[in-house]
C-alpha cells in the first residue's frame, strides 16, 4: 500500500534519510519509533506529498507519488497530527466544512455515525458547540481520530495521537485502530501500542 524506495532527504544540510526504504502492505499496521528529531515527521510529510524527497520514489496504492497523482494519493490518506491542527472555529462548523469538501462527500458522515464514534471514544457531545481553542489536548486528539474514522480512507497516518489521553482512552483508540481494515502508519512513543501486539515495529 505504501512503498518508499531508496529515499534521500536532507534538510538545511543535515541528512535525514539516505537510501531509506519502507514497505507497508495492505491492511498492515506499522509502528514507527525513533528518537525525536530523526525525521519521523518528515517521513509523514513525504508520504502526504508535503515534502519532496531529494531522491527516491514513493508509491501510494500502486500510484507513484508525483505532481499528477498528488491529489489522488492524498485522497487515500487520512492524517491525524499530534496537535490536530484545526482552525480555531466552532467544532460543529468545522466538521460540516470538512465533510463538505469535494473529495469527502462520499464519506459515511451522518449525525448518527458521529454520535456513535464520539461515544466510542468518550467525547462529550457538548464539545461540538465549543471552539477548537477551548478543547483540551485529549479532546482534540479524540476529535482528530473521529474525523479519521469517519473519513474512512484506506490509509491512516497517526502522528502521536495518544499522547494526551489517559490509559483507558488509549486502549480504546488502539483497539479502534487494530480493528480497522485500513492500512495504518503509527508514530508513537507509547509502549501500549507494542503491548497490543498488532503493529509491526519499524525503528531506527
Amino acid at each position: 500500500m505504501i512503498h518508499m524506495d531508496k529515499i534521500d532527504l536532507a534538510f538545511d544540510g543535515r541528512v535525514l534519510f539516505k537510501h531509506f526504504s519502507l514497505a507497508v502492505e495492505k491492511g498492515e499496521k506499522v509502528l514507527i519509533s525513533a528518537p525525536s528529531g530523526t525525521g519521523k515527521s518528515s517521513l509523514v510529510k513525504m508520504m502526504l506529498g508535503f515534502v519532496r524527497p531529494d531522491r527516491g520514489r514513493i508509491v501510494i496504492d500502486d500510484q507513484v507519488l508525483s505532481r499528477k497523482t498528488l491529489a489522488a494519493c492524498r485522497g487515500k490518506i487520512c492524517y491525524v497530527s499530534q496537535d490536530v491542527d484545526l482552525r480555531d472555529e466552532v467544532v460543529a462548523l468545522l466538521l460540516t466544512e470538512i465533510f463538505s469538501y469535494k473529495s469527502n462527500r462520499d464519506a459515511p458522515y451522518t449525525p448518527v455515525a458521529l454520535a456513535r464514534e464520539m461515544e466510542r471514544l468518550d467525547l462529550d457531545p457538548r464539545v461540538l458547540k465549543k471552539t477548537v481553542g477551548q478543547l483540551s489536548g485529549g479532546e482534540r486528539q479524540r476529535l482528530g481520530i473521529i474525523i479519521c474514522l469517519l473519513l474512512n480512507r484506506p490509509i491512516w497516518i497517526l502522528d502521536e495521537v495518544t499522547s494526551a489521553l489517559d490509559e483507558t482512552l488509549k486502549q480504546r483508540v488502539i483497539q479502534a485502530v487494530v480493528d480497522a481494515d485500513s492500512t495504518v502508519v503509527i508514530i508513537s512513543h507509547d509502549d501500549l501500542w507494542n503491548a497490543s501486539g498488532t503493529p509491526r515495529r519499524v525503528a531506527w
Partner: peptide, 13 residues
C-alpha cells in the same frame, strides 16, 4: 502552516 497542511490533507484540494 500546520493548520493549512492539515486542511490540505483533509480536503486534498
Amino acid at each position: 502552516r500546520k493548520e493549512y497542511l492539515y486542511s490540505l490533507s483533509l480536503s486534498n484540494a
